[in-house]
Design a protein around this nucleic acid. Structure first.
Length: 446
RNA sequence: GCGCCCUUCGUCUAUCGGUUAGGACCCCAGAUUUUCAAUCUGGUAAGAGGGGUUCGACUCCCCUAGGGCGUACCA
C-alpha cells in the first residue's frame, strides 16, 4: 500500500515555522517512499478562513518545493461530514448537550478547585426528551458530543513508539458547535477515511486527541491510520517557541532572503541525528528521512543555525544557479565575480554590497600606517591587471616597503575595497579594474 | 491539580547493560591563502540530582528538580 499523508493547515493565517515543519515531515515521509502528499485546506471555519491565506499557503509550499498530489477544501465536503454525523447519531455515539460555554467553564473551575479532573459529567446523556424539549423551548440550541468508550486506546506511534491514551480520563469531545459548525475533529477523521490517509503525521500536541480520534475512526467502521507524533519546536532559548519565532512566517523568511533549500534543510535536520548541513535538494532530504533519526525531545529552531545553512548553500552554489539572480541585480556580474565573492555571502542579497565594491564607488578608509604601502602600491601598479597581477604586484610592494603579511595586505584591501574583510584580492582586483584601482589607491572615491 | 513526553560536550545529537561515550555546529590550533573571509586537517569539551536493580548502568526501575504538551463549543 502506498503511503498517503496529508498536511491540513487552516487558511486563517500564513504558514509559519511551527506548522511548516509538520508539513515538511509529511512531505518528506511521503516523497521518500513514492507516496502521495495531500494538501487539505481546513476551512470549515468560514468566518476566519480567507482565500488570500489559502493562496498564501500554496505560495509558501510552492516556494519551499513542497508539491502536492491532491488537494481538498473541507468547506466543499460538508455533505460527507453530515452523513457521518447521521451514522454516529444512529449508533448512539453522538449526543446533544445544552450547557453554555460559561457554564462549562465554571464547572471546570469548580472541579479543579476540588482537586477533581475537569471532565465533562455527561449531563447531556441523562437528558430525557422532555428535558430537551424544555431546554429548546428556552431557546437553547444543542452542541453535540461524541460518547467516548472510556478505555485504554493504544497505537504504535512511528515517532514515539508504543502510545496509550485513557479516554476515560478525558471529556467527550464536542464535534458540532451550538451554531451547527464543525470542530476540527470530525471533518479531520472523516476526510482521513474518505481520502484514504495511511499515516497521520503531526505534532505531539495532538497525542491526547488521538485517543478520541481513534475511537471515532472505529465508530465509523474504519481502521485507524498509522500515527506519528513529532516533537514540537522550541526557540533558541530552549524554552517554548516564542511568539516572535513561533509566528515567524514563511513569507517573512522569504523576505529576509533565505534560500528555500536552507529553510527546508534546516527544518528537516534540527532535532535529528543528521548533521546540520545543506541538502542537495528537498528530494535528497526525503531520501534521508526516517522517524528513527528524530530525537524525542523538542527540536531547537535557531535563526543563527538557519543562517549558517544558508551561507553554506551560497558558498557552494554553482554559477549557473546564481546566473539569473545575478543578472537581476546587475547584467555585468559574471562568473568570475560570482566565484570570487560567493564565499563571503550569508544571504544572496549580500551580492549587492560586493557588486558595489567591484563596479560602484568606494571611498577608501585608510589609517596613517596604511599610507606608505598604498602609495608604493599605486606607484608600482602595472598598466594592465588580470588574475595573475596580484602576486607579482604585491611582491614588488613588499620589496619596496618591507611590509608583509597582514601589514601588507590589509592596507591594500582597505584601499581597494573600503573594507577589512572580503573575497580573495587576486580574484577581485581584475574585477575592479586598473582604472578604479589606481584612483582608489590615490585616495579618491571611485 | 491530573495525564503524557523529555533531560548526554557551550549547542543539535549517537549510544538501545560492558564503548578510549561517536558525529555535527561553535570555539581553539595547524595547513593553505605571503591578509581577512572561505576551504582542509587536528584538538578541547558531556550522561540534571538522589536512591535502587545488576558482576557491571548514560542505558532498566523509583524519587526529586527542571522543561514541553494536553486537559476548549481552538486547531
Amino acid at each position: 500500500m502506498t503511503a498517503k499523508v496529508r498536511f491540513a493547515p487552516s487558511p486563517t493565517g500564513r504558514l509559519h515555522v511551527g506548522n511548516i515543519r509538520t508539513g515538511l515531515i509529511n512531505w518528506l515521509f511521503a516523497s521518500g517512499q513514492g507516496g502521495v502528499f495531500v494538501l487539505r485546506i481546513d476551512d470549515t471555519d468560514r468566518e476566519r478562513s480567507t482565500k488570500d491565506y489559502e493562496d498564501g499557503i500554496e505560495a509558501d509550499l510552492t516556494w519551499l518545493g513542497m508539491t502536492w498530489g491532491e488537494r481538498y477544501n473541507q468547506s466543499a465536503r460538508f455533505a460527507i461530514y453530515d452523513a457521518a454525523v447521521e451514522r454516529l447519531k444512529a449508533a448512539g455515539r453522538l449526543y446533544p448537550c445544552y450547557e453554555t460555554p460559561e457554564e462549562l467553564d465554571l464547572r471546570r473551575k469548580v472541579q479543579l478547585s476540588r482537586g477533581l479532573p475537569p471532565i465533562y459529567d455527561r449531563a447531556g446523556l441523562k437528558l430525557t426528551d422532555e428535558d430537551r424539549a424544555r431546554l429548546e423551548a428556552e431557546g437553547r440550541k444543542p452542541h453535540w458530543r461524541f460518547r467516548l468508550e472510556g478505555k485504554r486506546v493504544t497505537w504504535e506511534d512511528l515517532a514515539r513508539g508504543h502510545s496509550e491514551v485513557d479516554t476515560a480520563s478525558m471529556s467527550d469531545p464536542v464535534l458540532i458547535r451550538e451554531d451547527g459548525g464543525y470542530l476540527y475533529t470530525l471533518p479531520s477523521v472523516v476526510d482521513d477515511i474518505e481520502i484514504g490517509i495511511t499515516h497521520v503525521i503531526r505534532g505531539e500536541d495532538h497525542v491526547t486527541n488521538t485517543g478520541a480520534q481513534i475511537e471515532i475512526f472505529e465508530a465509523l467502521g474504519a481502521v485507524p491510520p498509522a500515527f506519528a507524533h513529532t516533537t514540537l519546536l522550541v526557540g533558541a532559548d530552549g524554552l517554548g517557541l516564542s511568539k516572535r519565532i513561533g509566528s515567524l512566517s514563511m513569507l517573512e523568511l522569504r523576505e529576509q532572503g533565505y534560500e528555500p533549500l536552507a529553510v527546508v534543510s534546516h527544518l528537516a535536520r534540527i532535532g535529528t541525528s543528521d548533521p546540520l548541513e545543506p541538502a542537495a535538494s528537498i528530494e535528497a532530504l526525503a531520501g534521508d528521512f526516517a522517524f528513527g533519526k528524530m530525537a524525542h525531545r523538542a527540536a531547537r529552531w535557531d535563526p543563527e543555525d538557519l543562517a549558517k545553512v544558508n551561507a553554506a548553500i551560497l558558498h557552494a552554489m554553482p554559477y549557473v544557479e546564481a546566473k539569473q539572480r545575478l543578472a537581476a541585480i546587475d547584467a555585468d556580474l559574471g562568473e568570475a565575480f560570482w566565484l570570487a565573492i560567493r564565499q563571503n555571502l550569508t544571504m544572496f542579497r549580500d551580492v549587492v554590497g560586493w557588486a558595489a565594491v567591484v563596479s560602484g564607488a568606494v571611498t577608501p578608509a585608510l589609517s596613517d600606517e596604511d599610507r606608505p604601502v598604498v602609495e608604493a602600491a599605486l606607484d608600482l601598479l602595472p598598466a594592465t591587471v588580470d588574475e595573475t597581477t596580484w602576486s607579482a604586484w604585491t611582491g614588488a610592494v613588499k620589496e619596496r616597503t618591507g611590509a608583509k603579511g597582514r601589514g601588507l595586505f590589509m592596507p591594500l584591501r582597505r584601499a581597494l575595497t573600503g573594507m577589512d574583510h572580503g573575497p580573495d584580492m587576486a580574484a577581485i582586483l581584475p574585477l575592479i579594474g586598473r582604472d578604479k584601482a589606481a584612483r582608489r589607491l590615490a585616495g579618491e572615491t571611485a
